[in-house]
Design a protein around this nucleic acid. Structure first.
Lengths: 153, 153
DNA sequence: GGCGATTTGTTTGTGCGCGATCTAAATAGA
DNA sequence: TCTATTTAGATCGCGCACAAACAAATCGCC
């Protein structure tokens, strides 16, 4: 008996027993649940998250948005360009610091919030759990995520 | 007061309050946690899940694998081809039903299990939660995912 | 002021992930 | 038997997601 990788074949758990797989597949399920509703307002799921972030506070920088969504600028730049091309947001350099790009909602982007509100409501109905249970799950997962991020530093 | 989308601006929750976002970002965190370890054995995270599935039962069809992992053939076919090119698995048509493709581990693919065992162990240490808590989270998320899948039928 | 280090965002290349569409094999029915 | 339907995979197009490499602006420090 030792602590190296010389383990018996029986020690590899089934894929369905991995916590990471539960989260992985639940993420896909949410994506698929949102897709048809978001299709109707012309958003992808990550774009929807960007809009939610900007609806709550307009004029963020790419970096701020990335820290909020845990996404890299190399993911956000093309995504934001597509949203700009779609007329939802504007991307302008900050005149006080030309390194930064400021993100602002257009009138169209702001107006979309009303239509998106019903999507958010539908999701709540669809997942079929009460707010208290949802909060408990969310708290546990957020703690897990933050713990992982901490260990990656 | 009515039940249409005419809601006040205040009703859109912050992105960090969305359960779907917690799962979305935790999924990314897991992916980033696994990546450096899986890099060393030449696997991506979805490829690792395929390997775990085949280590527990070899000779699955693409369809069976897709049902287990909740992935479409349009995702799996190219992924499995890359794994075949990498010498981890073989893809052969089932002679009893030529529509099916059987997936079998190569000697190299089987051998990789030993090295992967330490990865799975490292993850357990890294996330820093006890098995009981992990099981509770997993059960809740799995129920959520299945509930979503049920409503999409 | 000048210059190296840091910060911010972009580009590039690779690999998912999925809807839509297609092909071939198997099956069901008349 | 012969055709219609179903099933299993493959292909295509698009949009993430991220590492690595890059460019430009700013900061720190003299």
């Amino acid at each position: 008996m030792n602590t190296t990788s010389e383990q018996t074949a029986a020690e590899m758990p089934d894929v369905s027993e991995l916590l990471c797989f539960s989260i992985y597949s639940a993420g896909h399920a949410f994506n698929q649940l949102y897709r048809p509703m978001l299709d109707e307002i012309g958003l992808t799921y990550p774009q929807y998250l960007v809009m939610v972030a900007l609806w709550s506070r307009d004029g963020r920088t790419v970096k701020e948005l990335g820290e909020l969504l845990f996404l890299d600028s190399s993911t956000l730049t093309p995504l934001l360009k597509r949203m700009e091309a779609g007329g939802l947001i504007t991307r302008t350099r900050n005149l006080q610091d030309e390194r930064q790009v400021l993100l602002h909602l257009t009138a169209e982007g702001t107006a979309l919030k009303q239509r998106a509100a019903s999507v958010t409501g539908c999701i709540g109905d669809a997942i079929g759990i009460d707010a208290d249970t949802a909060l408990k799950i969310r708290t546990a997962i957020d703690a897990l995520r933050d713990s992982i991020h901490k260990r990656r530093r």
